[in-house]
Write a protein that binds this DNA or RNA. Sequence first.
DNA 1: TAGATTGTTAATCGATTAACAATC
DNA 2: TAGATTGTTAATCGATTAACAATC
Lengths: 207, 207
Amino acid sequence: MPNKNDVIRLSRYRNALVRLRALNFVKVFCDNLADATGVSAAQVRKDFSTFDISQNSRGGYDVKELLKRLNKILNKDTTHEFIEVGAGNLGKALLRYPGFARSGIKIVACFDVDPDKYDRQAEIPVLPIEELDDFVREHQIRFGIISTPDVAAQQVLVRMISAGIKGVLNFASIYLRGPEDCVINNINLESEIENIVYFVNLAEKSK
Amino acid sequence: MPNKNDVIRLSRYRNALVRLRALNFVKVFCDNLADATGVSAAQVRKDFSTFDISQNSRGGYDVKELLKRLNKILNKDTTHEFIEVGAGNLGKALLRYPGFARSGIKIVACFDVDPDKYDRQAEIPVLPIEELDDFVREHQIRFGIISTPDVAAQQVLVRMISAGIKGVLNFASIYLRGPEDCVINNINLESEIENIVYFVNLAEKSK
DNA sequence: TAGATTGTTAATCGATTAACAATC
DNA sequence: TAGATTGTTAATCGATTAACAATC
């Protein structure tokens, strides 16, 4: 029932709550969350309604309780294991990205085609792509990150899916789609840049 | 009139066309673009209509002509200069990200608070954050990338905007907003991950 | 010409907002 | 109790799709 945007907003509420908790907030109202996240108060209430989040009809929400609830819904209570394919600049940076650990995810291995990149001793080992299938099956990995060049992305996806991966975060500038039962989120940095440039230029032209 | 999603789809059509051209396609039909990008053919026609793209009412589009048109609309004909703030792992990886050059953007300088990161001799120099304002004004930079830790993001944004920057790509896990005349695109990797985990778990539960 | 595809308008669908009764 | 905020339903708004006349 909830769609991608609903869950994205839930993430944002959670994020705001973490910061509010750090400021010692005990109670929080719909209006507070709306202000903090840039959505309308009606939207906040609607979202809580669709996720069956309610407290006592008045007097706002207890910050800690609400956070617990959101953490539960967003599966933040357990750690999720990911693999990554593509140990280039971006790929290596992502291996060390602190936000992932914070998000409760752990990248357990990286794969690449380039023998120069292999490193079995590293904390997060870099292995030959041929080992992906066995590794994924053996460790029952369900999530993957694609940080390869564009040309390789499609075939990497196919490989991941056939090995049993169900959720993919794709950084290649190609819009990837998969079967029904597979979740693919595409992050296209080139598109985002083009988008910014477009609207800034538009604003300047119309002056 | 066109909104963010319209322009994002335009980017995708462009991307698909680049690949089709590489395959020596001369003509392309709405249906081809629809298949290649995962949108409906009606959507493709609607989008072309809103951007006043038309050719001859039948017989599809000339790939090269259409590409030219999209490049023009998306401002791919000129190079755009960016600055970046935050020379951590992600920041450094982005400096070397080949997709940016391909997108016609050039990061001309990076800024950080950490003196250990300064490097004036590098191809893309890393400078003290205090020099941001003068640099932006002097070089008339309009675009910026934020790749700092979350806690710094908000104040970096304020600084960028007061220096005259109009478009920002934000990688911190905080949803940033700015004034009316400023375009901010937030890329929240944590949210994306949470999103994938949510939907994969949901699918597994409902089995 | 007949057939096929476009460009655009109208119809549908879904998401956001407004409103208000229920509640503490 | 009176006042204020929630939770939910109905109204509005916008985006996507369907349909079809225009066109080559």
